[in-house]
Amino acid sequence: MIASLEYQVARKRPAVPAVLLGRDVAKDAELLVPRHENAVLRRQLTKPVRYEPADRL
């Protein structure tokens, strides 16, 4: 029983840093996507963009 538990812990140990690092990567990607979308939309517009307070919220 103990050997089985040690085996399971040893197998899951390499996954812990990947999960912790994955959180930061996912958060960064979540922030970069809207920025990229805004950049693409700005390139398509000919006049300057004026944001309303509701847009900023």
Rank of each mutant, 00 (worst) to 15 (best):
M1A: 08
M1K: 02
I2P: 01
I2C: 03
A3V: 09
A3N: 13
S4Q: 08
S4H: 09
S4F: 08
L5W: 04
L5G: 04
E6Y: 06
E6A: 12
Y7G: 11
Q8K: 12
Q8W: 05
V9Y: 07
V9G: 03
V9M: 10
A10P: 00
A10Y: 02
A10C: 06
A10Q: 13
R11K: 14
R11N: 08
R11I: 09
K12C: 01
K12E: 09
R13Q: 10
R13G: 00
R13W: 02
P14D: 05
P14E: 11
P14Q: 13
A15W: 06
A15Y: 08
A15M: 11
A15P: 00
V16N: 06
V16T: 09
V16L: 12
V16M: 08
P17C: 13
P17G: 10
P17Y: 13
P17E: 12
A18K: 13
V19Q: 07
V19S: 03
L20S: 01
L20I: 09
L20Q: 07
L21Y: 06
L21N: 06
G22Y: 00
G22L: 01
G22A: 02
G22Q: 02
G22H: 01
R23Y: 01
R23D: 00
D24P: 00
V25H: 07
V25S: 10
A26K: 06
A26L: 11
K27T: 12
K27F: 12
D28S: 15
A29E: 14
E30L: 15
E30D: 12
L31F: 03
L31H: 00
L31G: 07
L31V: 02
L31E: 01
L32Y: 05
L32W: 01
L32N: 05
L32K: 12
V33E: 12
V33F: 08
P34M: 08
P34A: 10
R35D: 03
R35M: 12
R35E: 10
R35T: 06
H36V: 12
H36G: 07
E37A: 15
N38E: 05
N38G: 00
A39G: 08
A39W: 03
V40W: 06
L41W: 05
R42A: 14
R42K: 09
R42G: 00
R43A: 14
R43W: 02
R43M: 05
Q44M: 15
Q44I: 10
Q44R: 15
L45R: 13
L45F: 04
T46H: 12
T46Q: 14
T46L: 12
K47A: 11
P48Q: 14
P48W: 06
P48M: 13
V49P: 00
V49T: 11
V49K: 12
V49W: 04
R50K: 15
R50C: 05
R50A: 15
Y51N: 10
Y51Q: 07
E52S: 08
P53Y: 01
D55H: 01
D55I: 02
L57R: 00
L57N: 03
